[in-house]
């Protein structure tokens, strides 16, 4: 486990900023007694309280499976990929949101894109290719993705047109259970 280098931090922040924008500062600039930090362990980026960091330092590297919240992992080529485990933090600070109808929940949780027919609500002025967090109508976060069209363009779209490209959903907890950690 080690702190991120500047380039790695930049890669992580750019991905996070796509979803939570300027709220990113709330992840870093926190109260003294509630401070969190980013740490890299086995190519995965973890977000954990400082107190947990102090406890985790006593665990040898091969024995440490996971610590804090896994935000995602770095590919071998140095690109950062957000994981579904970061959903709780993304949902808390999300800037743009998409709500899907009960009929669309299951298809999304099986890893499909969100089509216009399943769209319940969407934040106004959402631009194209913007990271959005997907909720069901009861405001439970289901996953996240990237918008295919801006809010304005969705009006003209046919019902089977894709609105949100799927990136991660909570169904992965079951589907990718073996490879997730």
């Amino acid at each position: 486990m080690r702190p991120l280098t500047d380039e790695e931090t930049k890669a992580v922040f750019e991905k996070l900023a796509n979803f939570i924008g300027k709220n990113l500062v709330h992840l870093i600039d926190r109260d003294e007694d509630d401070a969190y930090c980013f740490r890299l362990h086995k190519d995965r980026v973890y977000y954990l309280p400082l107190s947990m960091l102090h406890l985790a330092t006593s665990i040898a590297r091969p024995n440490l499976v996971s610590v804090g919240t896994c935000f995602g992992k770095f590919s071998k080529s140095g690109k950062f990929k957000l994981g579904v485990t970061s959903l709780d933090w993304l949902a808390k600070y999300a800037k743009y949101k998409v709500w899907i109808k009960p009929a669309g929940e299951l298809p999304f949780l099986y890893g499909n894109h969100v089509v216009k027919a399943h769209l319940g609500r969407i934040t106004e002025d959402t631009p194209e290719h913007q990271g959005v967090v997907v909720y069901n109508m009861a405001d439970v976060p289901l996953g996240f993705g990237v918008t295919a069209r801006s809010t304005l363009d969705t009006r003209k779209l046919d019902p089977m047109g894709i609105i949100v490209f799927h990136q991660a959903d909570v169904g992965e907890f079951l589907r990718d259970e073996d490879t997730m950690f």
Binding site: D6, T9, V25, I28, D29
Partner: peptide, 15 residues
Amino acid sequence: KEGLLGVLKSVESGL
């Protein structure tokens, strides 16, 4: 934290 905020600033300016 100062380091992270510095990186954040550069990311936000690009944003």
